[in-house]
Amino acid sequence: MSIQDIQEEIVEEFSVYDDWMDKYNYLIELGKDLPPIDPKYKTDQYLIEGCTSRVWLHAGLDREGKMVLTADSDAIITRGIIALLIRVFSGHTPEEVKNADTAFLDRIGLQEHLSPTRANGLASMVRQIRMYAVALSAQK
């Protein structure tokens, strides 16, 4: 599935929730289910310092040249959004990731979490993912 198709799928999933609390309940479940990041990446080197919550992010390439993203946060809602971002971006080539947007977050009403003023590390995380994509595509 393309990045765009996955985004459509997520928008579809969230469309069943018309109540904010249901939407966040789902996000919290996603946050709880997010596979833990390898402890060796949960260090200051991979830390994106936010004002309210912190995010750790690591990106690499698998044998097929697809990006593999793992990330974690100390806040569960941030973890939920991380889970969505990983679902969208992980498993695609750096070229695809480099040029992709995060419009789906706006469409499901979670854009505020990417606002730099929230300073929860997510806006920086998306920027960081793109930087990884640029760096990894140059490497190939």
């Binding site: 904010w20 919290i28 004002c51 309210t52 919550s53 809602i77």
Partner: peptide, 21 residues
């Protein structure tokens, strides 16, 4: 519980608080 999680959900229930340092 992380303060930002509590603050985000309070916001969605109409309660404006501040979270952080």
């Amino acid at each position: 519980l992380h303060h930002s999680d509590v603050g985000t959900l309070l916001d969605k229930l109409g309660v404006a608080v501040r979270t952080g340092h």
